[in-house]
């Protein structure tokens, strides 16, 4: 029986095992070691939330702190990837992507296609996503749709420690640039994780709960909110099936369509802003490919179209809740043809 570890530990273990297995895997980021150049201890932080703590001692040559200079080091990670390395760059918060976006969407994403298939850019950019940390508008966003929109990028957003380890190792081995989104409110979440290295293939959604009345398609933290909602609904006799997408690009539409065909109802739950997000994408595709199976209109649960507020009271209202999800499911049941 596997031991239980947190998602934070899963990230750490995946990086540890990937660096040990392959010397071209290097990690770089702001304070991922911490204390560089100072008179105190090295590895003082191990990342702003301690995710990479201890890795420097094991892999001193593969762990590099960077200046606060996202364009330069994210671009350098991409350049190094094009020259035979497998860099894992940590961009503290996905909110900082604006600072270095060109390097990601014009450079990394396009090399392979633009150069006629003659370049590979096996870079992983890890970043924290999501609200609930009382971190306000510029440290709390769920910007996954921005990246899913861009051809050439792969986007991963796991909901648990097991998926995190397997998907992160897969991301490092993948030859395309991967935006690896870690929900900061899931870092402490624990589950059983094998000690050995393993991978989870991209584009395979996970059915985290089976049910026959309604399908919830979601990812990240919202998987857990959906599970909470499902538990409440179960008492009402409503059996919800929850699809955890795990990777947003590539996207496992087969699993989604299969589930919707079975249940006839769909609720899309997305922590990203409501316009042009993963939920709207899933809804559109289900309408195109499984319209006949739908017994009710599709419901979406998202935050309002506002920046993430600071006040804890407001932020809690901002993040989609289990109650909102349950309400949406009930609407699909009630509104059925």
């Amino acid at each position: 029986m596997a031991r239980k570890i947190s998602m934070k530990q899963a990230v750490n273990e995946a990086l540890d095992q990937a660096m040990a297995a392959d010397p071209t895997v290097i990690c770089m980021g702001e304070d991922i070691v911490g204390g560089a150049g100072g008179n105190g201890e090295m590895d003082a932080w191990g990342g702003v939330l301690g995710v990479t703590k201890g890795l420097y001692a094991k892999h001193p040559k593969q762990m590099m702190d960077t200046p606060l200079s996202e364009s330069a080091y994210i671009g350098a990670a991409i350049g190094a990837a094009a020259c035979g390395m497998r860099p894992v760059a940590e961009l503290m918060f996905i909110d900082f992507m604006g600072v270095c976006f060109d390097q990601i969407f014009n450079q990394a994403a396009k090399f392979k296609y633009m150069f006629g298939g003659k370049a590979e850019t096996p870079v992983v950019i890890r970043c924290m996503v999501g609200a609930g940390f009382r971190a306000a508008a510029q440290h709390s966003q769920m910007l996954t749709p921005l990246f899913a929109h861009i051809p050439g990028l792969k986007v991963v957003c796991p909901s648990n420690a097991y998926d995190t380890k397997g998907l992160l190792i897969q991301s490092i081995r993948d030859n395309d640039p991967v935006i690896f989104c870690e929900h900061k409110n899931l870092y402490a979440h624990e589950c059983e994780v094998p000690e050995a290295s393993y991978t989870i293939p991209f584009g395979e959604a996970n059915i985290v709960r089976e049910g026959k009345h309604c399908t919830i398609v979601t990812y990240g933290l919202m998987v857990h909110r959906s599970l909470d909602a499902a538990a409440v609904l179960a008492k009402e006799g409503v059996e919800v099936e929850i699809v955890d997408l795990r990777t947003l690009s590539p996207l496992d539409m087969d699993t989604v369509l299969e589930s919707v065909t079975k249940t006839g109802r769909l609720v899309c739950v997305d922590e990203a802003s409501p316009r042009c997000n993963i939920a709207t994408d899933i809804s559109a595709q289900v309408c195109m490919h499984a319209f006949g199976a739908l017994k009710a209109q599709i419901e979406m649960v998202t935050p309002p179209h506002t920046p993430v507020p600071f006040s804890p009271v407001l932020e809690d209202m901002y993040i989609p809740s289990a109650a909102q999800i349950a309400t949406a499911v009930r609407k699909t049941i009630k509104g059925s043809k």
Partner: peptide, 23 residues
């Protein structure tokens, strides 16, 4: 490593190439 349509984009990229060279 490519001509580049984005002015100044080569700076970070070449740092990466040089980092790889250092390794």
């Amino acid at each position: 490593m490519g001509a580049n349509g984005i002015l100044g984009a080569g700076g970070p990229l070449i740092c990466g190439a040089a980092l790889a060279a250092k390794y």
